[in-house]
Amino acid sequence: MANAVAVSTPAVRVPAWAWLLVAVALFAWYVISQDNGAVLGAAAGFLHEVTHDARHALGVPCH
């Protein structure tokens, strides 16, 4: 058996927009799981109630 580590794995070309997508995804994660009014203001109250159980279950700071 050949030394598998010596075989190089080809890289996957990652387009620049992919990192923008990661930034948007992580921001969306922050808004639905963390935000308590800092970004969304008044709309945060409704979002907080909708995501309430999941926030507790995911263990993020809730209230």
């Binding site: 639905i32 109630e49 909708v50 995501t51 309430h52 159980d53 999941a54 926030r55 279950a57 995911l58």
Partner: peptide
């Protein structure tokens, strides 16, 4: 609504 919201959130 909160339970359904939790499923959607996950």
């Amino acid at each position: 609504g909160q339970v359904l919201g939790a499923i959607g959130t996950l």
